[in-house]
Amino acid sequence: MADAIYTETDTQYGPIGRVLDALSKAFAIAAGIVLTVLAILSLVSIIGRSAFAMPVMGDYELVQIMSAVAVAMSLPFCQMVRGHVIVDFFTHNCPPKINRFMDLIANLLLCLGAFLFAWRNAVGLMELRKSGDASMLLDIPTWVGYVPFILSFALLGCTALYSAWEDFTGERK
């Protein structure tokens, strides 16, 4: 599992790369803040229900929405630092040029998929607004959670496209 290890590196990005890097980092920070708030909310709910017989109304729904948002907003950063795992067993003896070409295709596919999801989520949002779907206890409209999803998938698409560009020019690795 290629996870959990992150140390700041001084990757040199071009102007577009710098913008995408800053944006995906901002999304990652927002995700971290949402998660921290979620953790504190759960704590308050536990204390409320065990000490005062007063749980936080709708804590279950809030956790669902907040963790979904945090997860979605983590996606672009993961791509920006090329954190998604691949099986490079079959190709690690290939010439770097060929591997770069395959990575280019893979990143283009991810880009396509991400934009597809951004578009479909936007359609879903419109329908949810029309139907008035909402959470059970707090009446939070469901479409609200789709806004960060659309933005995150769109940004994921952009970062994947940028990675493909890096593969094309050979600027990285």
Binding site: T7, K25, G32, C78, G83
Partner: peptide, 19 residues
């Protein structure tokens, strides 16, 4: 940068697992 590195590390792993 300690807090930021925590958040970035978690985001990287989260993004990877949930994709």
């Amino acid at each position: 940068r300690g807090f930021l590195e925590c958040v970035y590390g978690a985001a990287k792993a989260t993004g990877m697992i949930f994709l």
